[in-house]
Design a protein around this nucleic acid. Sequence first.
RNA 1: GCGAAUGUAGCUCAGUUGGUUAGAGCGCCUGACUGUGACUCAGGAGGUCGCCGGUUCGAUCCCGGUCAUUCGCCCCA
Length: 414
Amino acid sequence: MSLPQPVRGTHDLLPEDFRRHAHVIETARTIAARFGYDETSTPIFEFTEVFARTMGETSDVVSKEMYSFESRNGESITLRPEYTAGICRSFISNGLQQNVPVKVFANGPMFRYERPQKGRQRQFHQIDLECIGAAEAKADIEVISVAAMILKSLGVMEHCRLQINTLGDSESRTSYRTALVEYFSDHKDNLSQDSLNRLDRNPLRILDSKDKGDQALVAEAPLFSEYLNSYSAEFFDEVLKGLDLLGIEYDLNRRLVRGLDYYTHTAFEFVTTALGAQGALIAGGRYDGLIEALGGKPTPGIGWAGGIERLAMLASNLPDGKRPIAIVPVGDVAESEASKLAYELRQAGFSIEMAFKGNVGKRMKRANKVNSRAAILIGEDELERNCCTFRDLDEGTQTEIPLKSVKQALDALG
RNA sequence: GCGAAUGUAGCUCAGUUGGUUAGAGCGCCUGACUGUGACUCAGGAGGUCGCCGGUUCGAUCCCGGUCAUUCGCCCCA
């Protein structure tokens, strides 16, 4: 077939998919608002610098997955691969340090040039929550608890587990990193090719390797807990206690890491095994060094992002859509009267389905197809008496009622 | 970026060990029922068998390439 196809890794959101997406967004938005997070939005593209500086030149996303292009005036522009960098840039651009803590929720499309798979696309959508300007562990607890409540409300909590770890402050991190590089450098011969690459770029990632040989080495590797200074250890302890207090279950995962130096302390992921290799549903952490890296004053921050496609695939409790009421004119004479009634009822807030053409049979079929709750039939007979035939499509019963009382009849359906 | 599998109607899939008009279910359209849906019955439309090339008298089927999807790796939401 040579029909036009969408660009690889992009998908159309047909109404049914769209409803699922909207449900995820609406649920997240509502719950975020309960915690005091206001909705915000930033541009879909930024200067390439914004992402290169925040995500790190050596990260996979920056080095090979960005949709970058030269704008007409020669500037390098990049379609956003994530939300955090743009929101932090916005924080600086708008002088929001005066409003600290800035608590925002956002959603929208992201772009990464990756190999598409189930739950992984080149244009995908994320919900995002950021709390900027709070260094307290209470902020970590809050941010995680918002995510937990959203997952619970979507009915996907039962399909996932919260994994959590600490990366410590930069002092703890640096000393651990040094120790790790030293340890693995002594065992280079036994490391997989992937991990040899990681040794330069991102040694902490080796802890997460799936290679059997690597895992044997990892088992003997120095433990992060031995390199955590007391502040970092106490901070993490407070976060865990806060989660315990709220009854949020978690697994301590000492291998959960983030590659870049801006990430500090808490790192967490709500992971599932239901989507193949794409396990992360909502993932985030603390990024106390990020705003500074963008050129702002040192400002702590913590947040997370969640994949809407992934969440939508697992969401189980979709609300039923509103069912329309069908208006069916019988014969040409009633056509204009029916149109007027449809307009009035829509004005009054009802969802009305009225076909553009067709005899009664066709229009009734159409009414049924769009899952109408009831049908209102108007013909010459009814008009003479200022009435209409009101048919309950679930019960299969119908009565004649005055046109005046149509609204009451519809209200009575609930 | 690497490895593997798959690709037949709008959807889910049969099928052809290479041979005239390629099938089913669902969906769609029409009618039985010109003032009544969901049920039933009868008809109908819709496919250059992903695309390009090769082998062959002949390819949807075999071979190569390509594109897309899926799975694993990498990475991540």
